[in-house]
Amino acid sequence: MIDNDLAQTGLTFAAGFGALLVFMGVGLAYALRRHLLSIVDTLWGLGFVVVALVSALVSLGGDGGRAQRWIVLAMVAVWGLRLAWHVGGRNSGAGEDPRYADLLQKGEAAGRSFATTAVTRVFVPQGVAMFIVSAPLMVGPNNDRMSVPLAVLGILVWAVGLFFETVGDAQLKAYKSDPANRGKIMDTGLWSLTRHPNYFGDACVWWGIGLVGAGSWPGLVALVGPAIMTYSLVNVTGAKLNELGQRKKPGWDDYVRRTSYFVPLPPKR
């Protein structure tokens, strides 16, 4: 029984890896054709939906919990499709993202072609990160039982995260749409509780998915993805990188002093 479960989980991981390889390969071809790296930001949310769907279908051949399989897929689909819609709409017609433009400029200075930079600096690293973070999507559907308390807790944490991410993005979009706010710091709404409500929400979403997937002790592997995602959001590609471009705005130091970095807290006087 255990050998069958391990074999089924291994098959799910292999299928997830293959699906991501094809998905990112198609995305890379599109980026090369359009000469646009920022498409990878839209692919980020969609890639997890692809892995979750493939994992759910492949796990049908095992003894995993039926409810757990579809709950995880539904949670990822709602999050990933919303994120892809938001990012895709934001980037449509905007040209290359400044982050990728800077990356391409440095690559050109180092003698790297657009294709080389796209593969080695963007698509391969993002693909590897997506596969690792997708652990709960491939482990959860193969758990032989579901912990109801963990599942309820996970759905609640996921809902809190989706609220912060969705509302935070909407508030920021509305703020930026007003020309009077150009060059100013967004410090109202959820942005008065944390400097990064969208990234905090992202972390909560993945901890929620991980908790639903961790229905038995082997399922604790599902928590690897949320842990890595949270570390990246806090210290690498998320909040930390975002603040590098914010520090030049007037009033930034005051905003930092009164507003929590990541976890929402009442603003300081």
Rank of each mutant, 00 (worst) to 15 (best):
V133D: 11
P149A: 00
V236P: 07
L11W: 12
G210V: 05
G93S: 04
A151H: 03
H35L: 05
A74H: 11
G93R: 06
H86P: 08
I2L: 14
N242H: 15
L57W: 06
Q246S: 09
G111I: 00
G45Y: 07
T42I: 13
F123S: 02
W217G: 03
T230K: 08
G88N: 10
F17T: 03
K106W: 12
A31F: 08
G183R: 03
Y199V: 00
H35N: 11
W70A: 04
A14D: 00
V128C: 03
L81V: 15
R145Y: 11
T259D: 10
S55H: 08
Y199R: 00
W217N: 09
L190N: 04
L46W: 08
W191Q: 12
L103W: 12
V236I: 15
A174H: 10
I185C: 03
F262R: 11
G251K: 09
Y175E: 08
A239T: 10
V76L: 06
Y30P: 02
G80S: 06
M146Y: 02
K249V: 06
V160P: 03
V122F: 11
F262P: 14
M186E: 13
A77E: 09
L32S: 13
T237I: 10
V160A: 04
H86W: 13
A67F: 14
G215E: 07
R257D: 11
D187S: 14
L46T: 15
G215N: 09
V50K: 01
M24C: 10
L11R: 14
R82L: 07
A227G: 02
L172R: 04
G189E: 04
E96A: 01
V221N: 01
R34P: 00
R258H: 07
R33Q: 08
A118L: 04
G168T: 01
T9L: 15
H35G: 11
S232A: 15
P267V: 00
K173Q: 08
K240Y: 12
V263G: 01
V40M: 04
L46G: 05
L21F: 14
A151Y: 05
A52G: 12
V160H: 03
L53V: 15
A227R: 00
F17K: 06
L241S: 09
P264M: 00
G16N: 02
K268T: 01
M1L: 14
R66K: 07
I71Q: 12
G62I: 01
W207C: 09
A227H: 02
I71A: 05
S216E: 15
A222G: 14
P125T: 02
G88K: 09
D63E: 15
F17W: 14
P264N: 01
A214P: 13
G16M: 02
N142D: 13
Y100L: 03
M130H: 07
G213P: 13
W191T: 12
A101F: 03
I228L: 15
A7T: 15
F200S: 00
D3C: 02
G189P: 13
G183I: 01
T194S: 10
R182Y: 04
D254H: 13
W70R: 06
V212T: 14
A214Y: 09
L36P: 05
I71R: 07
A115G: 07
V51M: 02
A84Y: 05
T116S: 14
A74L: 15
R90H: 12
G251I: 05
L57H: 05
F164L: 10
L32Q: 15
K268G: 02
R269Y: 00
G45A: 09
G27Y: 07
G89M: 03
N142A: 08
P266I: 00
L83W: 10
T188N: 11
Q105I: 05
A110H: 12
